[in-house]
Design a protein around this nucleic acid. Structure first.
Length: 585
RNA sequence: GGGGUCGUGGUGUAGCCUGGUCAAACACGCCAGCCUGUCACGUUGGAGAUCGCGGGUUCAAAUCCCGUCGACCCCGCCA
């Protein structure tokens, strides 16, 4: 070993020992007579002291600069009385340098590593190795490791086994664009990188693995966001002979273990379970942030009974909704703010008004547009919520939900500040299908292998939009961090679903004939879930972008600023693949 | 595919709206000198910027206009 201790190890109990440390120069304070050097590594920082006599003996020690990698041998000594540094773990002691060697010199870094300034993210990514030295990334990477470690141990203890599945595979139908990989041994054919190991993990169930998990990269060729990278990591789980509740309980236990062991926090389990419909109605989204104590209320019935009102058409359309968002104690409201919000709402295609609910004398621009009875119904609802402003919005259902859902978040921030802590919840009872207007057919909301609710099975064809899926999403602080379902294990039901999705026999065979066939050889009932590890870790360490918890992330345009990928390739590389670039000269 | 924010010494910003006084200011960093107790050391001095790139308007452009490149945020897309 080059070193005897790391830079975070020395304590007062080590005083008198001769030690050898190695690391990066974090900062130097040259006082002429005495030089202080902060030596840094993953574990911490130790102050090196080079006294005047030693300086003369050591060859050009004044040459060292920040980020030089050095080796220092010396004696651990107690810092003089009153000069300890409580901000360092090693702050009781310092190392009196006797021997010193520069192992690597370093150019001037393109940004300051120790700085409170925001650093341009492009620079950070281009020089990621320097960025990784900073405490933020060091912490995030270690934290991520801690989380995955707890997960692996938790699942392993419950007799789950981690099984690897192929990256060079056939595209599994998750709805996203595939990354394609040409195949030299089979020219004109392509592998696809998996969007998830969905079919493989189900086949593992058919294969009797029973309890599978994998911490695995998935690939989706879609546009990037703060919480989306083209390659991302899932904690993929599948288990046999279970119902939905078993999966939820398992994950709740797993998340509890993560919170306890990685963050030393208690998790409140079980997590609240909200139906998809309830979520949209109360929070305007299917991934609500429950830390915001504001709830919307559906009063569409009021509009229906007030069909004579000039506010909306006499014949209330099917996709119409009227919803209120009570904002108790909102001080920021004024006529002007209300008008501005109404204008914003109009811009988003919905109507907006408000009720001022004060001192038992509610007032509102709506008052004389409603019947006495309608007005009383509206204010009756609001009085129960306490004094303050309530926003009232109506129009297209989806737009109303979206707008008030947004307002809920924004006004929530205004009223209660930035929410803190971790709030998990399950969203369940998703519709099995959603209508695809462009293609004029039904699409699977989750994926085509999701089992319908047993009680909805017979209305598959008759009431397609009302068929509920045995699927569930895990939501943390408004981020979707996981999703899964109980799967279909009956080939007949699977067949029915495919037919409903208007997949031809030929298509079924071509795309996943191998999978359908596997169902015919004794498939256990099974279900599972996939957690977005990047998002989970991001939310748990308070970051707002998954790039902060990925060692080498890509830019929003999908490029890697460190390596320059993607990059052109030589024509000689394409030829054996049977490929040629268009417009190539 | 679309909307938005940003781009000025090594870094972070000011200046841009209202063109000239800008051969560009401040802080950090960097270099050199001084300093034996600092830990965001102090102190004295110094170097360092064709204002992302290209074009246009103008007597004159960091500043106005057009295009382009890059980073970020969002919609579409994606669970």
């Amino acid at each position: 070993m080059i070193r005897t201790h790391n830079c975070g190890a020395l304590r007062s109990t080590d005083i008198g020992k001769t030690v050898t440390l190695a690391g990066w120069i974090n900062r130097r304070r040259d006082h002429g007579g005495v030089i202080f050097l902060d030596l840094r590594d993953r574990w911490g920082m130790t102050q090196l002291v080079v006294d005047a006599q030693v300086q003369k003996r050591l060859n050009r020690i004044d040459r060292v600069r920040p980020e030089y990698v050095v080796l220092a041998e010396g004696r651990v000594r107690k810092r003089p009385e009153g000069l300890e540094n409580p901000r360092l773990q090693t702050g009781e002691v310092e190392v009196e340098v006797k021997e010193f060697r520069i192992l690597s010199e370093a150019k001037l870094p393109p940004f300051e590593l120790e700085s409170t300034k925001e650093t341009d993210e492009g620079l950070r990514l281009q020089y990621r190795y320097l960025d990784l030295r900073r405490s933020r990334m060091q912490h995030n990477l270690r934290f991520r490791h801690q989380v995955t470690r707890v997960i692996r141990e938790y699942l392993s203890d419950l007799e789950f086994i981690e099984v690897e599945t192929p990256f060079l595979t056939k595209s599994t139908p998750e709805g996203a664009r595939d990354f394609l990989v040409p195949c030299r041994l089979a020219p004109r054919r392509f592998y696809a990188l998996p969007q998830s190991p969905q079919l493989f993990k189900q086949i593992l169930m058919v294969g009797g693995v029973d309890r599978y998990f994998q911490v695995v990269k998935c690939f989706r060729d879609e546009d990037l966001r703060a919480d989306r990278q083209p390659e991302f990591t899932q904690v993929d789980i599948e288990m046999s002979f279970v119902e939905a509740g078993d999966v939820l309980t398992l994950v709740e236990g797993m998340i509890s273990a993560v919170l306890e062991q990685a963050l030393n926090q208690e998790a409140k389990v079980p997590f609240p379970r909200l139906s998809y419909h309830e979520c949209l109605t109360r929070y305007g989204t299917d991934k609500p942030d429950l830390r915001i104590p504001l709830v919307m209320e559906d009063l569409t019935q009021l509009a229906v009974s007030e069909h004579a009102s000039p506010l909306w058409p006499a014949k209330i359309p099917d996709d119409f909704m009227l919803s209120v968002l009570p904002l108790p104690g909102w001080k920021g409201f004024s006529r002007k703010v209300g008008d501005d919000l109404a204008a914003l709402a109009r811009h988003r295609g919905v109507a907006l008004s408000w009720v001022r609910n004060e001192a038992n004398e509610p007032s509102s621009p709506l008052k004389n547009k409603l019947s006495k009875q309608g007005w009383d119904t509206l204010t009756g609802h609001l009085q129960a919520k306490g004094n303050g402003i309530a926003l009232v919005s109506w129009g297209n259902k989806e737009k109303v939900r979206e707008f008030l859902g947004e307002q809920r978040k924004e006004r929530g921030r205004e009223l209660f500040g930035e929410p803190e802590g971790f709030s998990f919840c399950w969203v369940v009872d998703f519709p099995l299908f959603e209508w695809n207007e462009e293609e004029r057919r039904w699409d699977s909301m989750h994926h085509p292998f999701t089992a319908p609710h047993p009680s909805d099975l017979e209305r598959l064809e008759t009431e397609t939009p009302r068929v509920r899926a045995q699927s569930y999403d895990l939501v943390l602080n408004g981020f979707e961090v996981g999703g899964g379902s109980v799967r279909i294990y009956d080939p007949v039901v699977q067949e029915k679903i495919f037919r409903l999705l208007q997949l031809s026999e030929e298509e079924i065979q071509r795309k996943f004939g191998f999978f359908v066939e596997s169902l015919q050889y004794g498939c256990p009932p099974h279900g599972g879930i996939a957690l977005g590890l990047d998002r989970l870790v991001m939310a748990l360490c308070g970051e707002t972008s998954i790039r902060e918890v990925i060692a080498f992330p890509k830019t929003q345009k999908g490029t890697c600023l460190l390596t320059g990928a993607p990059s052109p390739v030589e024509m000689e590389q394409l030829t054996p693949l049977g490929m040629r670039l268009k417009n190539e000269t």
